[in-house]
Amino acid sequence: MPHEKINPDTLVRPHGFAQVVVASGSRTVITSGQVGIDADGKLAGSDYRSQARRAAENVYAAVAAGGGTPADIVRLMIYVVDPTESRLNDLYQGLAEAAREAGAGRTAMTLIGVTGLSEPEWLLEIDATAILE
């Protein structure tokens, strides 16, 4: 198994991610931060759900360009503007929708609240690390 996901009993049981991912492989794909815009620069929507879904789809496309699949992703970093509970719920819903469609599994993840991103209409940004065999 190239990626072992571990949730130790000594850590809180996670919802939607894995506490630890042990990965082995011969190629690493690291993406730049992806936001909720399409290839033409059009914003997916003004809400967290739409932008999260599109940003995740962009991450999966970036990993594919490096020769990987969503299943090869071992770590996500998510930067969120003003992460209130309702906004995070919307964000998680968008991520889950994109993951289901792409066949992505749970992985190690860190979410960081920020005051802003490069463009004021961007609500979140996601970057990923994938390990390929």
Rank of each mutant, 00 (worst) to 15 (best):
S50F: 04
A62Q: 10
R53V: 09
A65E: 15
L88T: 00
A99W: 06
G41D: 10
T115S: 11
A102D: 13
T28M: 11
V29I: 08
V80N: 08
I126M: 01
Y48C: 07
R87I: 11
Y60D: 06
A104M: 15
A102L: 12
G105L: 08
G94I: 07
G25C: 12
P8A: 13
R13E: 10
M109L: 13
S86C: 14
E101T: 06
A130Q: 09
A55S: 09
N89I: 05
R54P: 00
S86V: 15
A71Y: 15
G36C: 06
P8G: 09
Q93W: 08
Q51C: 10
G94Y: 01
L43F: 02
R54D: 04
A56S: 03
R106Y: 12
S50W: 02
R106M: 13
A71Q: 10
Y60T: 07
V63W: 04
A128D: 07
W122C: 10
I6K: 00
I112G: 08
K5W: 03
A96P: 02
A71E: 12
I126H: 00
E121Q: 13
T115K: 00
G25I: 11
R75V: 01
P83K: 02
S86Y: 14
R100N: 07
G68C: 02
I6E: 10
V29G: 04
G25W: 04
V81A: 00
I37G: 00
A62H: 08
A52Y: 07
I112H: 02
S26K: 12
A128W: 03
T31G: 01
R27C: 13
A98T: 01
K42D: 00
A18L: 07
E97I: 11
K5G: 13
T115G: 14
G33V: 14
A55W: 00
A18G: 11
G103T: 14
L123N: 05
S50H: 01
L91G: 04
P8N: 06
L124H: 05
Q51L: 07
D90A: 08
N7D: 06
V35Q: 05
G105R: 11
D9I: 15
L43I: 15
F17I: 15
Y79S: 05
T115W: 00
Q93P: 00
S24W: 12
E97H: 09
I30L: 14
G16P: 04
G105W: 10
E97R: 11
V21L: 15
G66F: 11
V74Q: 05
D40I: 08
A104S: 14
T129D: 05
A71W: 10
V74K: 01
G66E: 09
N89H: 11
H15P: 05
L43V: 09
R87W: 13
W122G: 00
R27F: 14
I78F: 10
Y48G: 09
G16H: 05
D47S: 05
L117K: 04
R75W: 03
E119Y: 06
A56W: 03
T107N: 10
V63L: 06
G36E: 07
I6Y: 05
A52R: 05
N89T: 14
